[in-house]
Amino acid sequence: MTSTGPYEIPAHVHSALLPQSTRLVVDRRGSTVWDVQTSNDGRYAVKLGYPTEPHPWTAVAPAREAAVLRQLDRVDRVYSGEWDEGTWNAQPWHEGVSLFDAWQPGRHHKHPKEPDLADAHACATALATLHAAGWAHGDVQPNHLILGPAGAGAFLIDLALARGGKVPDIFDFQYRGCLVHYEAPEISQSILEFGTATPTMEADVYALAASWFISATGWRHVSYPDDAERKEQRQAIVDKPHRPINVPGPLGKVMESMMCRNPADRPTAAEVCGEVRNAF
């Protein structure tokens, strides 16, 4: 079954949260997300999953993410359940701006401005914290890195693809990659060969560097036509070296090491934090 969103918040979820206001945030790839302000329980991101072609697993992704969040014990107000088209979850809203939007003023293909090291450190810290808990994210990208208000650090959101613990079989599914613009070569290679891959912390580190690169320059880490099919995109990532890192300042050197072809040669997220902190 294939559905088309966006979808309104189901009546039983509406009754449970009692929204004071709602705002449609996004609807794409099998997920409708609402920003919901309640009168007495704060602000929530409400995600409604529904099946798409060729990705029916999007219907159960919200329930899977809720299971991950509960194991991480990062938030104490995570709700989930089923609805007519799939599953849903409600989790506390993270106030802030995405990495991609935050670095937009300095973004330039040939002459980017030196990125904000505090922002970069906050992003690396969020990833290192997840890794320290034993989880690989599997979908690190600029829009999943939310820079909070001053002093609040960064939040790494959208954990539906994360691996590191047991989730209910009914809501689990194989990992078939993420947004290709941020895939590490070994992930793309595995998907091309086998149709699936295993998210790793090393691939997350590569994806973080690719996220910094596109946010600072506007370039994808590997060149391929804008209208290329996903198979062609992944083949380019496997066959080609990444673009030259033309990001000025100390972060460029750190990014070079994070995007090594050999996963074993990449620094850990914790090591990236140390390198960026020492560059202040």
Rank of each mutant, 00 (worst) to 15 (best):
A136D: 13
S39Q: 07
W88K: 00
H137E: 04
S98M: 05
R77H: 14
G96E: 07
A45F: 00
L99R: 07
A126L: 03
Q104W: 08
R43V: 08
W34R: 03
E82Q: 14
V60T: 07
T87I: 01
L99I: 02
W34N: 03
Q37D: 15
T87W: 03
K47N: 08
G96R: 10
W135N: 03
L72K: 00
L99G: 04
A128D: 12
A120V: 11
W83N: 00
L72P: 01
A90P: 06
A102H: 07
A63T: 12
D41H: 13
R43E: 13
D116K: 07
V97K: 12
P51D: 02
R43H: 15
R70K: 08
G42T: 03
A124V: 11
P51F: 06
V75T: 14
A59I: 10
T129D: 11
H108S: 15
W83M: 06
Q91V: 15
P62K: 03
Q37F: 08
H108C: 12
D84G: 04
E85V: 00
V97E: 15
S39H: 07
A126D: 06
V78D: 09
V97Y: 09
R77D: 15
E82I: 06
S98Q: 08
V75G: 13
Q37S: 09
A59V: 08
E85D: 08
V36I: 13
A122G: 04
P62F: 01
V68W: 14
G106E: 09
G81Y: 12
L117I: 04
P92T: 10
W135P: 04
L127M: 13
A124L: 15
S98V: 06
A133M: 10
W34P: 01
A128Q: 13
G96I: 03
E82M: 05
S98E: 08
R43F: 02
H111C: 10
T87S: 12
P51H: 05
H55R: 14
W93H: 13
C123K: 07
D101S: 11
T58E: 01
V68Y: 12
D139R: 03
A102F: 07
W103P: 01
A90G: 09
G96Y: 03
S39I: 07
D76C: 05
E114I: 02
P112G: 12
T32C: 02
Q71K: 06
R70E: 14
A63P: 05
V75I: 06
T125Y: 00
A67L: 09
W135M: 05
D84Q: 03
A67M: 02
P62T: 02
V97I: 13
P112K: 10
L69I: 14
N89Y: 03
A120S: 11
S39R: 15
A67V: 04
Y50N: 02
V68A: 08
K110T: 15
D41P: 00
H111W: 10
P115W: 13
E82S: 13
E95Q: 09
V60G: 04
R77W: 11
D35C: 05
S31L: 12
W57Y: 14
P62L: 01
H131E: 06
E95V: 02
A66G: 13
A124K: 13
P54H: 02
L99W: 07
G106L: 14
H55C: 01
P115R: 08
L48G: 09
V33Y: 00
R107K: 15
H121V: 10
Y50K: 01
G42I: 12
D84C: 00
L72W: 02
K110E: 15
R43N: 09
G134A: 04
D73H: 06
D116R: 13
V46A: 11
P62D: 03
Y79N: 00
